[in-house]
């Protein structure tokens, strides 16, 4: 092993880039941040060292927040990470569609049976209606999907 001296970059104390040439902090972070089942986590589970396990989980969440600000967004495409957010979004969309369908049906009913004259077309909207509209505007990713 002769080339391993490459690891210790003598200029690393001053430059922003931590790893080998041409790498970035993001490259390093995506390698050393806890992203799932890792040997250390396993060790801790084996030890039943709950205290440390909790630290790791919290650390992970903190890392995600920091990473997000730095522009690292792997969790958005990570099925494991985003499944909950995706599920929430789907459920929300379902709910919205159901509401709209119901509103349309009410409207059709209203138009079909003029005799009732119910104010279904009223633009004031029911509270439920307004609620769904605001919901659709929420981007699931603007909220932390990990919490």
């Amino acid at each position: 092993m002769t080339e391993v001296t490459d690891w210790v970059d003598p200029t690393a104390t001053t430059v922003h880039v931590p790893g080998p040439n041409n790498s970035t902090l993001a490259d390093l972070l995506e390698r050393i941040l806890d992203k799932g089942v890792v040997i250390a986590g396993d060790i801790k589970v084996d030890l039943l060292d709950i205290e440390l396990l909790t630290i790791r989980l919290r650390l992970f969440i903190a890392s995600v927040d920091t990473a997000k600000r730095a522009g690292i967004d792997w969790w958005e495409t990570d099925p494991a990470m985003s499944s909950r957010a995706a599920r929430d979004a789907l459920a929300e969309e379902n709910e919205t569609l159901r509401e709209r369908l119901a509103a349309l049906e009410r409207r059709l009913d209203g138009e079909g049976g003029h005799d009732t004259g119910t104010p279904t077309r009223s633009d004031t909207g029911t509270p439920a209606h307004t609620q769904t509209q605001t919901q659709t505007q929420t981007n699931p990713y603007t909220e932390s999907p990990t919490r």
Binding site: I32, D34, D49, E51, L52
Partner: peptide
């Protein structure tokens, strides 16, 4: 610097 390693993730801490 001298041989193979298994690197551990950031903040692997034991009491």
């Amino acid at each position: 610097s001298h041989g193979p390693v298994v690197p551990l993730p950031l903040a692997t801490v034991y009491l």
